[in-house]
């Protein structure tokens, strides 16, 4: 609290609020005004993956359960919106309602997946969740009557937010930005809550936690459900922004990409998740000039990253809490 001041002449508060204002100014005003459509699309993609990363961080990072089928919840959210707000069945439910439906449906599916796999750990859990992801994709691919099969669902309604029609990539950017900030705040608060501490304890030693009177099954189911609900919400945003969904968007590769986001930046660390999303979304864009070698280079970078920084790019203790502390917010 009483450390020597890094910027003599200013009070802490002025510097802090100034930096925050500058940050808000850049991401809310400068970026959307200056970025071109292509750049905004990349940024929107980044924001979506940041959301997915936050969702998976709960189950993989906090609870320590490797879930390789996360994309299934993304798909459930996306198809909820695609089916309930398009010409497919001529349902045109409002965006916010479908957002609620998609989120709850995904959370419910998360419980459904979580329940039978409670006894599994590590590799076995990874394999079963992987299978689950594929099952959902195959169902979507084959249930022509509902999902229109491999052709996908097109002409999805534009999202309408209490009168604000989200049409341009710029609108979507601002909207997703707000959502990401909101979700990250909540997930961070979850991490700091007693529940977050119990997840950490469960990661360290389940047996000891059970002997302390905590029902670890409930903790795991909660992790699955909360993480799935964020995945589902991200899916609704995805469908609303693309206005077209098909099973191709929800292949295993996507699940693995999201796990990479969570792992490469540093497990159980939201700052790490943000950086992971940057690496996974922005780096391949920067490598676009190399065409065919793009994914090869990207893969090499990931392998190098894992070898050089096995605990992720950002060590766990340098999280949001650390930043808040260092900058004097707490």
């Amino acid at each position: 609290m009483n450390q020597p001041h890094p910027f003599p002449g200013f009070s802490h508060a002025i510097v802090r609020w100034g930096v925050l204002a500058a940050l808000v100014g850049v991401i809310f005003f400068a970026v959307p005004l200056m970025a071109k459509v292509y750049e905004l699309r990349v940024l929107n993609n980044l924001l979506l993956y940041m959301l997915l990363g936050a969702g998976l961080t709960i189950v993989v990072g906090y609870a320590g359960l490797l879930d390789l089928g996360f994309v299934a919840f993304y798909a459930i959210g996306a198809y909820s919106y695609a089916i309930l707000a398009s010409a497919q069945f001529d349902f045109h439910l409002p965006f916010l309602l479908v957002l609620a439906i998609g989120t709850i449906l995904a959370a419910f599916t998360g419980l459904l997946l979580g329940y039978p796999v409670m006894r599994l750990r590590g590799d076995y859990l990874a394999i079963v969740t992987l299978g689950f992801g594929e099952i959902i994709r195959i169902i979507i691919n084959n249930w022509n009557g509902l999902t229109n099969g491999p052709k996908g669902i097109a002409r999805i309604d534009r999202p309408d937010l209490l009168g604000w029609q989200i049409t341009t990539p710029r609108d979507l950017y601002l909207f997703l930005l707000v959502v990401v900030i909101l979700v990250y705040t909540l997930v961070f608060r979850l991490e700091r809550s007693l529940l977050g501490k119990a997840w950490r304890a469960m990661r360290e030693d389940q047996v000891a936690l059970r002997a302390s009177g905590v029902d670890t099954t409930r903790l795991k189911l909660l992790a699955f459900a909360l993480s799935a609900s964020i995945g589902g919400a991200a899916g609704v945003f995805f469908a609303a922004s693309q206005r077209f969904v098909s099973p191709e968007s929800f292949v295993l590769h996507e699940s693995i990409l999201i796990v990479v986001i969570v792992v490469i930046g540093g497990v159980a660390n939201l700052i790490g998740t943000v950086i992971g999303a940057f690496v996974v979304v922005i780096v391949p864009e920067l490598l676009r000039g190399y065409q065919d070698y793009r994914m090869l280079l990207f893969g090499l970078l990931l392998v190098l990253g894992i070898i050089l920084r096995p605990e992720g790019l950002v060590p766990q203790r340098y999280g949001i809490g650390w930043i808040l502390k260092k900058t004097g917010w707490r």
Binding site: L194, R200, A201, L209
Partner: peptide, 12 residues
């Protein structure tokens, strides 16, 4: 819970 503080051990 090796990575947790003493207080956190009691809190959970």
């Amino acid at each position: 819970f090796e990575d947790m503080t003493l207080i956190e051990h009691i809190e959970v």
